[in-house]
Write a protein that binds this DNA or RNA. Sequence first.
DNA 1: AAGCCGCGCAACCGCGGTCGA
DNA 2: ATCGACCGCGGTTGCGCGGCT
Length: 213
Amino acid sequence: MAAEPEEEAELRRGPWTVDEDLTLINYIADHGEGRWNALARAAGLRRTGKSCRLRWLNYLRPDVKRGNFTADEQLLILDLHSRWGNRWSKIAQHLPGRTDNEIKNYWRTRVQKHAKQLNCDVGSATFKDAMRYLWMPRLVERIHATAAPTGGDPTIGDTSAVTTSRSASSGSFTSELCGEEKNLHVHGSGEKTTSGGDWMQDADQEFWAMHMQ
DNA sequence: AAGCCGCGCAACCGCGGTCGA
DNA sequence: ATCGACCGCGGTTGCGCGGCT
């Protein structure tokens, strides 16, 4: 095989540098996004268009929301995934500021982990039923408890402040749970910090495990 | 204190769809 | 109608970090 084209050989891969980030941000600020291959060349980035698009959408975009998922976001993910499966981009459209990649990672790391702990597959009917009839109602309870004025513990689990910055996009959203429509009104704003066991506390794991037997 | 291990996140890869020449 | 380039999506991988032994 002859030597590959010089341009191909010079394409960078791996983690983005601060300079590259700035270059991409500035270029998009001036020219807008889209036409990623042309954009990469015009901006002087030695990256593929794909890489630029991914970096922008998942990390650099100003409206990207960072941090752990709130209770209502978790509930929405569970709900939407039960309807659409691994249609991450479609699910992400309903979570403002969240990217498909982030949701996908969340699902793979948190949800699948817990499924594994319960010795069942996330695709199994058992897991789906348990999620729909046991876990999701519990999440709703928590959200309501959190929303209550004197609602006591404003956290999901012992480590997470259940808040949301859902803001104008939707003060509430509808979720089909257990065959009936429920409107979830979630208040709050600001930071939330969940660490690891956010979507299922130890107590819940016991609760669930009992029902799974 | 050091090494190991698991987790979470960022990025890459492959594939299918779309659109324009 | 066909072909190639590009785009977007879903799956997978690699690496850094923090916790545990």
